[in-house]
Design a protein around this nucleic acid. Structure first.
Length: 295
DNA sequence: AAACCGTGGTG
DNA sequence: TCACCAAGGTT
């Protein structure tokens, strides 16, 4: 399975010790951080770097310290508070999750993987992360950092594949410490190693606690030779157009006339399509034939 | 299953 | 400079 000279225990020990010495101090990792705080952080961290999440997270928790608080707010307030974190549909999903927590779970963030997974915006990763980080449970927490660490250290390739495979999940499962609290710490520790040392672009192998037993390292750090990892186009796309349109509404605190939306995107066909999609998504409200606002 | 969904920092 | 990338989820 893992083909480790010392067995998994050696790997655990090294990574856990490294984490003890190098873990970042983050608000959602404080001992008094609530499950709700952990959940909010996980939503915000989906595809958004820690540095940009920190200030928005602080303001968000100050405004809505509980799920009930957010559920009582309008979705428009949530979208505005989301600021420029990107992927604003996450703000709607977090609002939806808060609403479901109030109506179906008595206002308390549920602790079971199945109940978490059923909330809007919560997929396999986020459900496992909240169950593990907030409730100390033993689960495979497989994010992009963990996948990269396992790909390199155990599989011996520079990058993991496009999607999580059964073999990958089995590998991570076999690596999970038996003890529940240790498994929870292991989950966050491997993730942190991927975030700080085993990074995508320029890994700091000289500072890595497992570099001497890393399969990729021992193979001579062979360059990635899998299928091209396509980046996402941006200039001129609907995503850019939607971002511009929503930005106007987010920065305005009164309904906006369509002329102000026309001013930020010249292609009328695309602009109209994007505005319709924003309304369809619930990110924008059409107040009249020619005025718009956040919902 | 592949495409889509924002934004800004970085080497 | 400009691809690449960042604690994914949904369809």
């Amino acid at each position: 399975m893992t083909d480790l000279p010392e067995g998994p225990a050696g790997l655990h020990q090294r990574v856990l010790t490294w984490y003890d010495d190098h873990a970042r101090v983050l608000p959602w990792r404080e001992p008094d951080a609530s499950p709700w705080a952990v959940m909010v952080s996980e939503f915000m961290l989906q595809q958004t770097p820690v540095a940009r999440v920190l200030p928005v997270f602080a303001a968000w928790m100050d405004t809505w310290p509980t799920p009930a608080g957010l559920a009582a707010a309008s979705t428009g307030d949530a979208v505005r508070a989301w600021g420029r974190l990107g992927y604003p549909r996450r703000a709607l999903r977090l609002h939806g999750a808060a609403t479901a927590i109030v109506t179906e779970h008595g206002g308390e963030v549920p602790s079971s993987l199945e109940e978490l997974r059923a909330l809007p915006g919560v997929g396999d990763y986020t459900a496992a992360a909240v169950a593990s980080f907030a409730f100390g449970q033993r689960h495979v927490v497989l994010d992009t950092n963990v996948r990269r660490v396992l790909a390199r250290s155990l599989t011996g390739v520079e990058f993991p594949g496009a999607s999580v495979t059964r073999a990958e999940r089995d590998l991570a499962t076999g690596l999970l410490p038996d003890d529940e609290p240790t498994a929870a710490t292991w989950a966050v520790a491997v993730m942190e190693l991927g975030a700080l040392v085993c990074t995508a672009a320029t890994p700091r192998c000289g500072s890595c606690p497992v570099s001497d037993l890393c399969a990729w390292q021992r193979a001579g750090m062979p360059a990635y030779d899998g299928p091209p990892r396509r980046g996402q186009a941006w200039a001129g796309t609907d995503r850019q157009c939607r971002g511009r349109l929503l930005g106007v509404l987010r920065d305005a605190h009164e309904p906006v006339h369509r002329s102000r939306l026309e001013a930020v995107w010249s292609d009328a066909v695309q602009r109209s399509r994007c505005l319709d999609s924003l309304v369809h998504d619930g990110l924008v409200a059409r107040l009249s034939a020619d005025t718009y606002a956040l919902p």
